[in-house]
Design a protein around this nucleic acid. Structure first.
Lengths: 239, 239
DNA sequence: CATATAAGGTTATCAGACAACCGTACAAGA
DNA sequence: TCTTGTACGGTTGTCTGATAACCTTATATG
């Protein structure tokens, strides 16, 4: 390759990822129709000005995300966007207000159910963990980083008390994404002034769980989360 | 590590995926601790008896799923659990009856909420997709493979009608895992005889969504899923 | 007309090399 | 002693070229 073409891809960071993103855009924006065949690896390599290895890695990434399917000896094809397999949430997506609201909305029924189950199934050690998180929350005079960590720990403790590993897995995952997004948005400031009401809500959840009253626990959790949504200026339907 | 491991990898289909699965198991089962460094690509290639390209593609896949992070010039590391951006469920776990029940229990509140939101937000094209899935379900005279696919499509269509991408993401993910587990357990036989009642339940969900009645849609979905759980001999609390 | 075979194209895998980058050890200087 | 600069080895990232496995299509053969 004697002449170097600088109109191509800027170097700098993870070539395959950027090429995958570019091809992925071609697909999701419809310039490559579902079912249509992608250019061959050789051709893609030449058009992007990279080697075939990079193109292969990019296509592998798209295949993982379920955007393309490859058939040996035939080619790579764009698939329906419908069935993707790896449950992955890009943290960047949550900077979008719509997406943040959507994830919060998904969280609500899960946490409500978890509160009810925790009321039924918790054992003393788990209640102790809940109290511990609550203490850390109360101890923090300001709603600092530590307060957020404690809040996360509280909800994880509730989820653990369900004795259902998947509630812990999913709620921990979602709640962590949400609190990271809140942190990234520097929205902690607005939370400081409402720390008391938040703590009070947590306490009432804790008490309902401790008294083994699933209905009351669900109500308390619902009240807490809808309130939290409102404080974040999210409008969420509730039934 | 002087001795060569000849229990290597069976050829046959998609080498990188199987190697990724194997390494992923090492990580998620804790034999490689979070933050720990993976063996070098050269070493992995030699131990698995494949070329470095295959190992690289496998690691790229794991990086996509968020299980490892790579740093050029240093190595590949298992990610700390907090930073994982993907949620992984080993299909093998669901052969355990307890775990299967737990995942099903998690699914219920999500689907109920989704039914209510779908009733509020669906547009005609989405209702058409629901009807399409329903038609495929009715058309299959027996509860064959196609019937299961149609069932999955139905629940995905409901989730899509919420206009909340995360409901589609999570419900699609969970429902697919569950239907795969049912399929693997050869439990389809017991489903054949109850196909009529199942279809009737789906129809009532569809009708409630179509009439934009969220409360009725939630009730219909709750009735359907608790019924399905009972038919699978799962005991699940409901409030 | 049906079937077998050959040809060409495409992805999958392999092998080896160089580039970019990182961490560390070590020497030189203050 | 402490700091700083530098050389070195190791690791991932990328490139190149070749071979194997596989599919599609066209052609030959009966």
């Amino acid at each position: 390759m004697a002449t170097i073409d600088f109109s191509q891809i800027r170097r700098g960071e993870h070539l395959p990822a950027r090429i995958a993103a570019q091809i992925g855009r071609e697909i999701s924006e419809g310039r490559i129709a579902p079912g249509e065949k992608l250019p061959t690896e050789h051709l893609l390599a030449r058009t992007f000005g990279v080697s075939r290895s990079v193109v292969r890695e990019a296509i592998a990434q798209l295949r993982n995300e379920g955007l393309v399917e490859t058939r040996q000896g035939v080619g790579a094809f764009a698939t329906e966007i419908e069935r993707r397999q790896s449950l992955r949430i890009e943290q960047g997506d949550l900077s979008n207000r719509e997406s943040f609201r959507d994830l919060f909305q998904l969280r609500i029924p899960l946490e409500i159910e978890a509160a009810g189950l925790a009321a039924l199934h918790h054992v003393p050690e788990e209640l102790a963990k809940i109290d511990e998180a609550l203490a850390q929350m109360t101890g923090a005079e300001k709603w600092t980083e530590q307060g957020i960590v404690a809040d996360l720990a509280f909800h994880r403790a509730i989820a653990a008390a369900t004795h259902n590993e998947y509630f812990l897995l999913f709620i921990g995952f979602i709640a962590e994404r949400i609190s990271l997004a809140i942190n990234a948005a520097r929205a902690t400031a607005i939370l400081e002034e409402i720390v008391e009401v938040t703590i009070a809500e947590h306490v009432s959840i804790r008490d309902a769980v401790a008294s083994r009253d699933p209905v009351k626990a669900r109500e308390a959790m619902r009240y807490h989360l809808t309130g939290a949504a409102a404080r974040l200026d999210l409008t969420i339907e509730s039934f």
